[in-house]
Nucleic acid binder design. Structure first.
Lengths: 190, 190
DNA sequence: ACGTTTGCCTAATGGTCTTAGGCAAATTAG
DNA sequence: CTAATTTGCCTAAGACCATTAGGCAAACGT
């Protein structure tokens, strides 16, 4: 038999490209079929339905993002690692806006658990090992970093910082400095 | 003539309610018409099209959110104001998840400029006046706070923190403490 | 060479958004 | 009060979408 799954994967990859071209929201079976030069109905042998298609693109994006982040922090620590990690996210978002949006697609609990999501938390934890936070505060810091990275990049891509000085670039490094400083002087909990 | 605009406003308000009930993404002309007990085509005398409907709901949500935040910081300063402001956002998001999602709907530049968006920046700036940051750093801090609030609430509502200890509630207050500490000891820029 | 599987197809159903044109009731003006 | 206007809804229709069912030829493994 012709290897099953291979074709499905090509379809999903094409979906990811399409997302970067026209936006993740606009990725639909019919649009993807158009890109692939086949009839819409033909897609349904590779993908269960529209939601399944989006889910698979999200999983792909999550993996790619984790790979990039992982490569970025290898061999680094402290402010250096923080910057590399954060930039891995931001750069990925700018190079692959559709995939990045896909990575934020809401997965159901089971799918999320088997996604690269947990890898992201583990990496953030590894990053924090360079700072020594009280054990209990580590999770709070993980959540803070996730919030800032996601939040900043989203606002930036929505154009929130584009028409005002100082440049978004400048705020980004300044914010990373501030976070580094915060992590080195994390306040004792009351 | 029967006052124009009044009916349109009622339609938009119903759209906002619908968003809280079924999610902002799922708010469509046909769904809203169903809720209102009228035919889909009839909506088009009140609203230009589906995108216009979503835009108007977004503008409504942005205003409401600004009102809440504004009321929250009145008469407060420092960590007190920071907490009240942040909680205004978070509470609104939990009470009105659909509207909150609407507030993050991407508006074109012109619409965004005439929305309550600028009010949000001004309020954040007002909040920061309680801490005295070097003038140049103030914008960076505004952007940081916006990122954290948006990012945290979004991750939290997506269920990102739900199945692990410590509770999201605890992380939230701990993160606010950390931000307060950071704002009081903002690092000098290199 | 043969049966199986794959990857595509056409056809059909039911839902969506949107425009056009009409009609009765409410509202305003004289 | 009456007449003109406007509103808020309607039906009808076109174009597009997601999805299911059933078919067929080429590619594949044995």
């Amino acid at each position: 038999m012709a290897r099953a799954g291979l074709a499905a994967e090509r379809v999903v990859r094409a979906g990811a490209e399409l997302a970067d071209e026209i936006g993740f929201e606009q990725v639909t079976p019919s649009e993807l079929a158009r890109k692939l030069g086949i009839k819409t109905a033909s897609l349904y042998s590779h993908v269960k339905n529209a939601h399944d298609l989006k889910t698979r693109i999200a999983l792909l994006a999550l993996e790619e993002l984790a790979d990039q982040a992982s490569a970025a922090i290898a061999g680094r620590a402290g402010r250096d690692a923080l910057g590399a990690f954060a930039n891995a996210y931001r750069d990925y978002a700018f190079q692959h806006p559709g995939r990045f949006a896909a990575a934020r697609f809401r997965l159901d609990a089971a799918t999320a658990a088997s996604s690269a999501g947990p890898r992201h938390s583990r990496m953030t934890r590894a990053l924090l090992r360079g700072y020594d936070l009280p054990e209990l505060q580590e999770t709070h810091a993980v959540r803070l970093l996730g919030s800032v990275f996601n939040g900043y990049v989203e606002l930036e891509m929505a154009g929130g910082f584009s028409h005002s000085a100082p440049s978004s670039e400048e705020s980004w490094t300044e914010i990373l400095d501030a976070l580094d400083s915060l992590l080195r002087n994390w306040p004792a909990s009351s």
